[in-house]
Design a protein around this nucleic acid. Sequence first.
DNA 1: GACACTACGTGAATAGTATTCACAATATGA
DNA 2: TCATATTGTGAATACTATTCACGTAGTGTC
Lengths: 235, 235
Amino acid sequence: MHPTRRERYRQQTIDEIKAIAMKQLVESGEAAVSLNGIAKEMAMSPGALYRYFDNRDDLLADLVVDAYNDLAEHLQAAATASDPTERLRAVAQGYREWALHSPNTYRLIFESVSGSGLTLAADRVVPAARRSMNVFLHAIAAAATITDLPVDDTLRDELTRWGNRAEHPELPVAVLYLGLTTWTRLHGLLSLEIGNHLAATGISADLLYGTEIDTLMRTIAPEPVLQAPLDSGAS
Amino acid sequence: MHPTRRERYRQQTIDEIKAIAMKQLVESGEAAVSLNGIAKEMAMSPGALYRYFDNRDDLLADLVVDAYNDLAEHLQAAATASDPTERLRAVAQGYREWALHSPNTYRLIFESVSGSGLTLAADRVVPAARRSMNVFLHAIAAAATITDLPVDDTLRDELTRWGNRAEHPELPVAVLYLGLTTWTRLHGLLSLEIGNHLAATGISADLLYGTEIDTLMRTIAPEPVLQAPLDSGAS
DNA sequence: GACACTACGTGAATAGTATTCACAATATGA
DNA sequence: TCATATTGTGAATACTATTCACGTAGTGTC
């Protein structure tokens, strides 16, 4: 039950490795995460790191999981307003805040090459990613005043299956669909803002994001919610 | 006027370098573009490549410009239908086709780190990127039946300035805004599809993309266009 | 035609990177 | 006390980009 002395030391070393790796990631991006650099900073030989991580990708997979969890917590923390509409707006803005606070971390989880270690670590990544999505879904469920949407029957089936698999079968298809599109649209803006692709237009990403949220709110809640919220948080 | 013998040989070498680099990019991603590998394939010493490109980033910047131009041509080629609505749909679908035909190329231009060489090469990249955007803008201008949108005054100003700078001041603000959001929304979907982030949901990216296009079309043209198109192509 | 200049390519050197392995030291549990 | 598992070292391997001194060969000029 109690972790042994060795296990505690081991965990401490793992934490230190990850902390330095995360620092490198935040400051200089994924490419700058260097095992040699970490070893130097810890006054170790580079080979010793392989006692704790199979390889570089394995370490990055850990950072991805941590990042997803951190995102979920940030979104959850943003969802404080009692008014469902305001709460959803706050979650959407929290998403951007999180992305801008560390663009390199955002890039790691959403724009890194899924070829090698990350696809293999899907069993750890997917649940962590689901936590963030759940915050969105519950915020939308509470704010939504519409009950249906013009989506194809096949898509409807797929959404239902997704809802069941993701352990919130109580959510209507419209909410699932809105959760998905809210995410993809906000991500589209953030991805381009972070990648500096909006800078050339001279258009303020802030305004654009806010306008996109307004548009989404009009779809989700054409009439503001009047009844008390049905749901208050994520799982 | 005539390129000298030397200049022709030089251009030929540059083209060969770029062709091999592009092959590496398409097959294995940006990280796999290797000067050593290119040199080996050309039976040259690695150092000789520096007679043609300042460094690796300089070569990648060239690939970015070529990719943007290729995208613009693909979009333009997709815009054949005479019906403005169908034409816009085809352009949007052409965007996805191009992205899926070489995800690594899409990632290079939209998800690579803009820190080093690419920001410096903005004077070559921006015009090439503008070509693609112009196809979208003209397709939207021809299909749009709405004349205004609920956008903030500041955003309206920025859009106007962008329109002037991008050399199509004839386009109404609503069209500029719709062009921008069409792009960011489709990119959001494509970015996540390519990154394998939709796979975990089990939802068909194809259906989702089509549904998003439907939604966009409803915004752009609540009533189908009846009059002849005002505009037929990009610059 | 000889000369000077420029461009091109080589091969070696530098300084990074990840990863593996034989070996030694050390801590743990019996 | 002893056998075992864990941790770390240092060297080796095989990559990567990049720089540089040097030689060769083609180009235009006098």
